[in-house]
Design a protein around this nucleic acid. Structure first.
Lengths: 219, 219
DNA sequence: TTGTCAAGTTAGCGGCACTTACTTATAAGT
DNA sequence: ACTTATAAGTAAGTGCCGCTAACTTGACAA
């Protein structure tokens, strides 16, 4: 195991000749191909065999690097959580940490991620039993929200439990993302502006005074 | 087409002899078997071939009744919406129509449905392209919520748009159901009481005064 | 130079969704 | 009551999938 890791490292840093070794770094190539296919077709539209074709190897090759199909997906789920966390952090930093606008921006960022990469989003939160690695990364995402909310509470002298509020926000934003993603809003309430929905509800769940709420919308 | 419908009708109402015809009513038998399998295994764990085995026919038989696998699932999705709507209506009637408790009960009923039949819930709101039939039934579900909220608003002299509030409630409850269903709460905030979560947030999204909110919890 | 072993290959298994062509049993017409 | 048209089954087969086993190849180290 450790040897495999070492070897791979060497190959990656080595000069990548025009037609290197057997493949070069099939592991990463397969992950990349899988990610592409997940984005192009849905989470069920993807097949391991497709990824192999794209990487230019036979369908037996992946099993030198992954135990099964699931293990490739897990890798993508884990990096998905990283991406989501970073994207959220960027969004909140832009609008100001510890502010309602900042927290709202985090929610909209979550929505953006879901809509941009629906298949990966579904895998991240869906039925796929996640690895402990992905588990930790998912937890990190929520922790960031909790911290943001705590920051906001301290700044505004609120005494409410930040974790509780963070869970409320997560729940709402996740619901909005799921419904938008699956086209359920479109079917049932066409024309709904989901950004506005999140912007309207975030202050309510934060327990912000209505005066703040009233001015929020034209932010 | 219409002939087939007629014929089936006759068979259903006819005396069901001990070993009727080729199968009796394979159509319904397949739907039932599919539903069972969806409940036992996940939405992906189910195979058409499994359903055939359970119904005691060959794997080619279903194609006399359904165009493809999707068409069976659509049937289940449609009846799922019926079940959800009825269950919600029962819940709200029990706690009192037009009251916060009633609306909260609807939300918890939604959650119950999702947790009790996760695979069917995922199909209903998930990636499966729904038939126009299921579309209408999904819309009906939300309409009931809108009506309940409107009822509440009239009763309490609120002027807010009932549809807007209904969408907020739907979004939150759907998010809570999804996260609970997929085990995401358990991974990230273990021990969370989702019923309480819904009961806490519902009045907030209804725009209920905080005095009402304060007394709500021990309802 | 040569031996080792990771990382490819080929070939094949069982299972799936779905199709085609054939068979059977019933309901309808005379 | 006998025939007949046809709905509703079966058998057999296609191509694709995930995955395995047994082999070959080739980079690197002794």
């Amino acid at each position: 195991m450790a040897q495999a890791e070492k070897l791979r490292e060497k190959k990656r840093t080595a000069v990548r000749s025009k037609k290197s070794f057997h493949h070069g770094d099939l592991r990463e190539a397969l992950i990349a191909a899988t990610r592409e296919l997940l984005i192009e077709h849905g989470p069920d539209g993807f097949t391991l065999a497709d990824a192999c074709r794209r990487a230019g190897v036979t369908t037996a090759a992946p099993y030198k690097h992954f135990r099964d199909k699931r293990e490739i997906l897990e890798e993508i789920v884990a990096s998905g959580f990283d991406q989501l966390r970073e994207q959220n952090a960027r969004a909140v930093a832009e609008k100001g940490s510890g502010t309602i606008d900042g927290i709202t921006a985090m929610g909209i960022s979550y929505l953006r991620f879901a809509v941009a990469q629906p298949a990966i989003f579904r895998l991240m939160f869906g039925e796929l039993k996640k690895s402990s690695k992905a588990d930790g990364k998912g937890e990190d995402c929520l922790k960031n929200v909790v911290e943001e909310v705590a920051h906001y509470c301290r700044k505004n002298g609120h005494t409410t439990d930040a974790q509780q509020i963070a869970v409320r926000l997560w729940t709402f934003v996740h619901g909005a993302s799921s419904l938008e993603l699956d086209g359920d809003y479109e079917r049932v309430v066409p024309g709904l502006d989901v950004d506005d929905l999140i912007a309207d509800v975030t202050p309510r769940l934060l327990g912000a005074p209505s005066s703040v709420r009233a001015t929020r919308k034209k932010g």
